[in-house]
Design a binder for these strands. Structure first.
Length: 274
DNA sequence: CAGATGCCCTGGGCGC
DNA sequence: TGCGCCCAGGGCATCT
C-alpha cells in the first residue's frame, strides 16, 4: 500500500499542480478522516481560504505548507487512502468513500478517498508529528545500515519501524532485504560493515527505482496516483508477492512466511543466515 | 528492550 | 446466488 515511493509520486505531482492555489472551500463528510480535529466543521474552518505553498514529504506523510501560517495540512494515506485531483465544470461526482474535498480557486477538486478509513487529513504543526519519526529513508544523509546496527531487533521490524527510518513498509522492506541479500530475522546489531553498507545502498536503490516507476499498484491494491493512474513498480518486484516463483538470482523458490502478522517474502538460499 | 497480538475498517476472493 | 470466512497491512496500544 502507499509507502515512500507512492507518497513521493503523489507529492511531486501535487507540488506541481496545487502550489500557489487557494482553497476556496472544504467539504468534510468523513468524521473519522479528520479525527484529530474536534469536529469536521472545525477542520473546515481551519483550512478554508488558505493558500497552499510547497508540498513536502517525510516518510509516508505529505505536508502541504499553508501561506503565512506555522501550521500545515498533513495527510497520511495509511492502507487505502488516495488523493485525487479532478477537473471539470462541474467536476464529476465524487466516488464512494470520498471523505474530504478541497475546492481550489481554479475549480479543480482535491479529493481524499479512503475505503478503510485508516488514513487521515488534518491541519497541525508538522514538527509535532514529524519529530516522532526517524530520518526519511530517501534523504541522501540517511545511513540505514548504521541505524539498524544500533539495535538487536530483527531487520524487517527495524526497516518498518518509522521511528528508526521513515517511509518503508511491508512491500519495500522485502524488496530491500532481497537486494541486500539479508535475511529478515537477522538482528540489526549482527550486521558487519559490508552488510550494513549493502543495506544502505539497497534502501536507496530500491526506493529510487520505485519512485522512477511511479510506485507499486498490485492486483489487490488501492494505490493510484494523483490522476487515478496505476504505478509500474510492481513489475520490478523481485520477492514481494512472488511465493513459489524462482528467485531471479539463484532460482530457488521464493518463500512466504507470516512474520509479526504480515506476509513476508524472501529467498531462503541467497538471503540465508551467515 | 524485544517480540507477539489485537484493533481500527472495507473490499475482494474463495469454498460451499 | 449468496453467505461466511479469510486476507490485505500502517500505526498504535497492550501484554508477556
Amino acid at each position: 500500500m502507499p509507502e515512500l515511493p507512492e507518497v513521493e509520486t503523489i507529492r511531486r505531482d501535487l507540488d506541481a499542480e496545487v502550489a500557489g492555489r487557494r482553497v476556496v472551500d472544504v467539504v468534510a463528510t468523513g468524521e473519522r478522516s479528520v479525527r484529530r480535529h474536534r469536529s469536521p466543521g472545525e477542520f473546515v474552518s481551519s483550512l478554508r481560504g488558505n493558500v497552499v505553498e510547497r508540498v513536502r514529504r517525510h516518510g509516508k506523510y505529505l505536508v502541504l505548507g499553508l501561506a503565512g501560517r506555522d501550521e500545515s495540512l498533513l495527510v497520511h494515506l495509511r492502507m487505502s487512502g488516495q488523493l485525487l485531483l479532478v477537473a471539470g465544470d462541474p467536476p464529476p461526482p465524487a466516488p464512494r468513500h470520498t471523505h474530504v474535498v478541497l475546492i481550489l480557486d481554479d475549480g479543480r477538486e482535491l479529493r481524499f478517498v479512503d475505503p478503510r478509513t485508516f488514513g487521515e487529513v488534518f491541519v497541525g504543526s508538522s514538527d509535532a508529528v514529524l519529530s516522532a519519526l526517524g530520518p526519511d529513508a530517501l534523504d541522501p544523509g540517511t545511513d540505514t545500515g548504521a541505524l539498524v546496527r544500533a539495535s538487536r531487533r530483527r531487520l524487517k521490524d527495524l526497516l518498518m519501524d518509522q521511528r528508526v527510518v521513515a517511509g518503508i513498509g511491508n512491500i519495500y522492506s522485502d524488496e530491500i532485504l532481497w537486494h541486500a541479500r539479508l535475511r529478515y530475522d537477522r538482528p540489526g546489531s549482527s550486521l558487519d560493515g559490508s552488510e550494513a553498507r549493502r543495506l544502505t545502498v539497497a534502501v536507496r536503490q530500491v526506493l529510487a527505482r520505485a519512485v522512477a516507476l511511479r510506485g507499486s499498484s498490485l492486483a489487490d491494491e488501492q494505490y493510484r496516483d494523483l490522476y487515478g493512474r496505476r504505478g509500474d513498480a510492481a513489475a520490478a518486484h523481485r520477492a514481494f508477492a512472488r511465493a513459489t516463483e524462482p528467485c531471479p538470482r539463484c532460482a530457488t523458490p521464493i518463500e512466504r512466511i507470516r512474520h509479526a502478522g504480515r506476509s513476508h517474502f524472501f529467498c531462503p538460499r541467497c538471503q540465508a543466515l551467515p
